[in-house]
């Protein structure tokens, strides 16, 4: 019978046998050491793709996430680049050995940061590129063409490099769209897991893709999807400000996770085939 589940399963089985290289592989990830993000991101940050971390509240743990990423990558003896758009990184907040693998790019403007990131993502010696755009004027950030983000995405594809873009533009995350709520025992606040991430799938920036991304990035505040990086594969929103006790790690569960909201791109290869 045409279209029956049995036939479909048999067809999938046949395709998997004939074309084993096309079979979906478990996604390669870079563990962050932050349980909330690792859990939501299938074990960590996706390699070969962009992850956007939107810090929509002050003191919500963005810099803490950078510190955890530095520690996680240092333990694995990876090489990391931090493109610091406003020269805000504070080396004194970190242990000296955790900085040995870091290439810190101290930019002054958004243009410098985007150019530096574009150069760094093409270097095979790096395992992680962090692009910190927090503090950049929102209007300037929204003015970054979608093609720039796709250019970065294209450079990252087929590499084992992860890229994290920190922005501070997100507001009203999760006002619309299909929402799922998941709770973790490690975390106090709930994690919002929203399916149906707007925008095109990863791949070539076709006209339709670009238009969609433009709409998404240009209308992010209105549509409420909270991010500016059109080609991001995964997006987290750090939406809650942390209390003063967080300065010494006294807040319960802080070492395990941050209060985050997660958006996941729907166009996952595995789901597509399924």
């Amino acid at each position: 019978m045409r279209g029956s589940p049995e036939n479909l399963a048999a067809l999938r089985h046949l395709l998997a046998e004939r074309f084993p290289q096309a079979a979906p592989r478990p996604p390669a990830v870079l563990p962050t050491g932050v349980a909330a993000i690792d859990d939501a991101g299938d074990g960590g940050l996706p390699l070969g793709g962009i992850t956007e971390v939107v810090a929509s509240a002050p003191s919500s743990g963005g810099q803490f996430l950078i510190a955890r990423l530095l520690a996680a990558t240092r333990a694995r003896r990876m090489r990391v680049a931090l493109v610091d758009a406003l020269d805000a990184f504070d080396p004194q907040s970190h242990e000296a050995p955790l900085l040995q693998h870091l290439v810190w790019v101290r930019c002054r403007t958004l243009d410098e940061a985007m150019q530096a990131a574009d150069i760094l993502v093409r270097d095979a010696n790096l395992s992680l590129v962090m692009l910190d755009l927090r503090g950049v004027e929102p209007r300037a950030l929204r003015g970054v063409p979608a093609t720039t983000w796709y250019r970065l995405q294209r450079a990252l594809e087929r590499t084992d490099m992860a890229m994290v873009v920190f922005t501070a533009e997100g507001r009203d995350v999760g006002k619309s769209g299909n929402r799922e709520t998941a709770k973790s025992e490690n975390l106090g606040p709930p994690i919002l897991l929203r399916q149906g991430f707007g925008g095109p799938a990863s791949g070539a920036p076709t006209k339709e893709n670009t238009q969609a991304a433009n709409q998404e990035s240009g209308n992010s505040a209105q549509s409420g999807n909270g991010g500016l990086v059109g080609s991001a594969r995964l997006r987290f929103n750090l939406a809650a400000s942390l209390p003063l006790d967080a300065l010494t790690g006294e807040q319960t569960g802080l070492a395990l996770g941050l209060p985050v909201e997660v958006q996941r791109r729907h166009a996952n290869e595995e789901r597509r085939i399924a």
């Binding site: 050491g33 003191s59 743990g61 963005g62 810099q63 803490f64 950078i66 510190a67 955890r68 520690a71 020269d87 805000a88 990184f89 504070d90 004194q92 907040s93 970190h94 242990e95 050995p97 955790l98 927090r134 942390l242 967080a246 300065l247 010494t248 790690g249 802080l254 070492a255």
Partner: peptide, 12 residues
């Protein structure tokens, strides 16, 4: 080295 627990500073 212990994992960082407290929040780092983001300088102006």
């Amino acid at each position: 080295i212990l994992q960082p627990l407290g929040l780092p500073l983001r300088r102006f």
